[in-house]
Amino acid sequence: MRRHEFQPGRLIAGLVLVVAGGLYLVESTGGADLPWFAVLPITVGGLTLAALVGLVTYAVRRDRRERITESSDR
């Protein structure tokens, strides 16, 4: 299997959604009494963080590719 690039934004998004699902699971089994809207800010905040991390990762990788291209052109 080919190796792929590590994408931390997708990792954060996945973890946030697993946590949100876990909170709903705990609430549905009676382990906690969470209002239905409590998970929404956690999910939106986590997905926003994942988007920011993805954008920063993209910018760093693009800059690194440009530097490599410039140094190989010389």
Rank of each mutant, 00 (worst) to 15 (best):
R2M: 15
R3E: 12
H4Y: 13
Q7H: 15
P8E: 08
R10K: 11
I12L: 15
I12R: 06
I12S: 06
A13M: 09
L15E: 12
L17G: 02
L17H: 04
L17R: 07
V18L: 15
V19Q: 02
A20C: 14
A20G: 04
G21E: 04
G22M: 11
G22L: 12
L23W: 05
Y24W: 10
L25W: 01
S28Y: 07
T29A: 01
T29G: 03
G30W: 02
G30K: 05
G31L: 12
G31N: 11
D33H: 04
L34A: 04
P35L: 09
P35E: 09
W36I: 07
W36Y: 05
F37L: 02
F37D: 12
V39E: 01
L40H: 07
L40S: 09
P41Y: 02
T43R: 00
G46K: 03
L47E: 06
L49T: 10
L49W: 03
L49Q: 00
L49K: 07
L49A: 13
A50I: 10
A50V: 07
A50Y: 01
A50C: 09
A51C: 11
A51E: 08
A51Q: 08
A51P: 02
L52N: 05
L52H: 06
G54Q: 01
G54S: 04
L55M: 11
V56R: 13
V56K: 08
V56I: 12
T57A: 09
Y58I: 03
Y58G: 01
R62P: 11
R65W: 11
I68Q: 14
T69D: 14
T69M: 15
S71M: 13
S71A: 15
